[in-house]
């Protein structure tokens, strides 16, 4: 996936200009930045839920904007922050909806579809939960179900909007480690927004820092070398410590 000089925003208002980055297969990338800088907007733009305001956005050399919904559905899958409209589905049924881009006009599942669903459920360790209804699950379990659905969609790229919100430390780490292993083992491109900068530094292959000006993008250690994290927050409140890769509260 290649992004060059992309402007994102709503209507005529540009939220964040000039974003450039490119990610390869098997890479796990985080998008970080302060509230309101446009992380989710960028993700929604890449997923073609809203249109870009100029710039290049290509997948496999093809422009995302020119792809039909059913073509794009085989390239990009999404995990959004919005809750699913109906939680009265079993885990298995919800994961199975991920196969929609491949099923026939009435949505019958083939043997291939069924295998992909079983695989996705297994990877996300949801086997015991597969007959539970979604309203019976905890936030962490539901998040895993949504990732399983995206995985079942079997796209090259998986976009996740704040997959770690509302989760405790253990479940945050669990989800992020799962994302990384999925990216490395299945050679998928994973791109997610997060406020967990310290964890992203430890886990991700690359990080895009949205600051609305330069929007640096690189490997975490190089970003630390370039002191890119230091200007992220006002230094009188929190300061970044490059040696440990953590933020310190200024007292």
């Amino acid at each position: 996936m290649e992004v060059k000089g992309l402007n994102i925003g709503y209507g005529k208002k540009i939220v964040c200009p000039n974003i450039s980055f490119s990610v390869d297969k098997g890479e796990c990338t985080a998008i970080v930045g302060i509230n309101g800088v446009g992380k989710s907007t960028l993700l929604r733009t890449v997923g073609n839920l809203q249109s870009s305001l100029g710039g290049i956005l290509h997948i496999d050399g093809k422009s995302v904007r020119e792809m039909k919904p059913h073509q794009l559905a085989k390239k990009i899958s999404l995990v959004l922050t919005e809750p699913v409209a109906s939680k009265n589905m079993t885990v298995q049924e919800l994961v199975a909806l991920g196969r929609q881009p491949y099923t026939n006009w009435i949505g019958s599942l083939s043997t291939v579809d069924k295998k992909k669903i079983v695989d996705a459920i297994e990877v996300l360790e949801l086997k015991e939960l597969k007959n539970y209804k979604c309203f019976e699950l905890s936030d962490g379990q539901l998040q895993r179900v949504m990732v399983a659905r995206a995985l079942a969609q079997d796209t090259d790229i998986i976009l996740l909007d704040e997959p770690t919100t509302h989760l405790d430390l253990f479940h945050k780490v669990q989800i992020l480690k799962l994302l990384k292993s999925i990216a490395h083992q299945t050679k998928k491109t994973i791109l997610f927004t997060s406020h967990e900068i310290e964890m992203a530094i430890q886990i991700c292959d690359k990080i895009l820092i949205l600051d609305g000006v330069e929007n640096p993008f690189d490997e975490p250690c190089k970003l630390i070398e370039n002191k890119s994290f230091e200007s992220l927050f006002p230094s009188e409140t929190v300061q970044f410590d490059g040696t440990t890769g953590t933020f310190r509260i200024q007292k």
Binding site: G47, L49, P69, H70, Q71, L72, A73, K74, I76, S77, L78, L80, E82, P83, V84, A85, S86, M89, L94, L97, G98, Q100, P101, T103, W105, I106, G107, Q153
Partner: peptide, 20 residues
């Protein structure tokens, strides 16, 4: 029927599943 099942996840998800 197929798109109705997609709508169960919400419009954005339905769209990402290729529903026009």
């Amino acid at each position: 029927i197929k798109s109705l099942n997609g709508y169960l996840l919400g419009e954005n998800y339905a769209r990402s599943l290729g529903v026009n």
